[in-house]
Amino acid sequence: MSAVDETGTDRREAPPGTTAVPLLSASGVRVSFPGRRGAAAARAVDGVDLDIGAGEIVALVGESGCGKTSLARTLLGLVRPEAGRVCFGGAPLALDSRALKAYRKRVQLVLQDPSGSLNPRHTVYEAVSEGLRIHGCEGGEREAVAEALARAGLRPPERFFLRYPHELSGGQRQRVVIAGALALRPELIVADEPVASLDASVRGEILALLLRLRDELGLSALVVTHDLGLAWNIADRVAVMYLGRIVETGTVEEVLTHPQHPYTQAMLSVLPETAVAPVVLSGEPPDPSRVPPGCRFHPRCQVLASGAADAAGVGGRCRTEDLPVLAGDSTAAVACHWALSAGAAPGGGLDGGRADPPET
């Protein structure tokens, strides 16, 4: 039997003693969108490396407009990168319609707004079975729909078959969306703000569901969020994104208990559970059509504004010297002249303190 599947991906396991091939990886990915009336193009994704291993949950964290959704859409094959490449199982992702259809059976998207994701005129059964009909269902369709709903926590599944979205709670609608993805038995899901529209009482249930699916099915996930508390509760690894670049990456414990980049520290400081003083960023929100020279965070950087970077002898580099693209693997890394210099506070806090784990 061939080890190469319908998408052209080599599924053979890595030889003993070698590093396993990431399930999904981006290498040097760049995506731009043209500006209006001759304006400069918006550099939504400006050189990103990112790996997701089998059974791994990676949180892609950043504020609105940082490029995280554009990166997620590129990883799904919905946006063609102008540079770099996306690989699945070690093989470059082909962008022709046949290859993408096979690929999307194995990589599914879960959107943040279940009300907008579900057709109000379709029953739960029709919503979950839609993907099965598009891709062709091997075996009984009814059994596959029932299994997906049960795995998503809607039991007994037959009770929900003929219900419409308006008859469900917000948490139940999100479970239907997740069931629609699970029906195709994907290897990876991309969840874009999966609990942002849900009540606090339901958020924990959906996060627990995603963790259970990882444990039971070996499912990998890329969770796109602005919420560091969510990342702490669900992710194995965190990648912090700012203005089209990943500026800090590492395990969730490394990044969220000892943040090195001033942007990560600022995001973490506003959570009520952290033991550091809140940081209020000044300056204009980042504009992807006007990426500044040097460190792209320097116009808003609290360390540079306080004079600490100049005192450490790196202020000039912060303003003029670009930083390299961080590796996409599990190695902890930061793209910050100050953090990489002797002037960085031990432990990553502005006052050298340790940030306690956030909670949701």
Rank of each mutant, 00 (worst) to 15 (best):
S269I: 02
P346G: 01
V247A: 08
L23F: 06
P156R: 09
R175V: 02
V255T: 02
R30A: 05
S25Q: 14
A333H: 02
G171N: 05
C137D: 00
D96Q: 09
R37L: 10
S2I: 01
D51G: 00
R214K: 10
A239C: 09
L182T: 12
A332I: 06
P346Y: 02
V4P: 03
A41L: 05
C318Q: 12
G35E: 11
P186Q: 11
A231M: 03
G170T: 00
A94N: 14
L71G: 05
A148S: 10
L340K: 14
F160W: 11
S97F: 06
L243M: 10
I234G: 10
A152D: 07
T225S: 05
R133S: 03
A235E: 10
A239Y: 06
A127L: 10
R319C: 06
S2T: 11
L228Q: 04
S115G: 07
M241R: 08
A339Q: 07
G315K: 08
R300K: 12
A333R: 06
L230K: 00
S97H: 14
A342E: 15
H261W: 06
T18Q: 04
G90Y: 12
A221Q: 08
L23H: 05
S169Q: 09
S117C: 06
R212I: 14
A335T: 10
C137W: 01
L184E: 12
F88D: 03
A309W: 11
E6G: 02
V177Q: 02
P324Q: 09
Y242I: 07
A44P: 05
L211T: 04
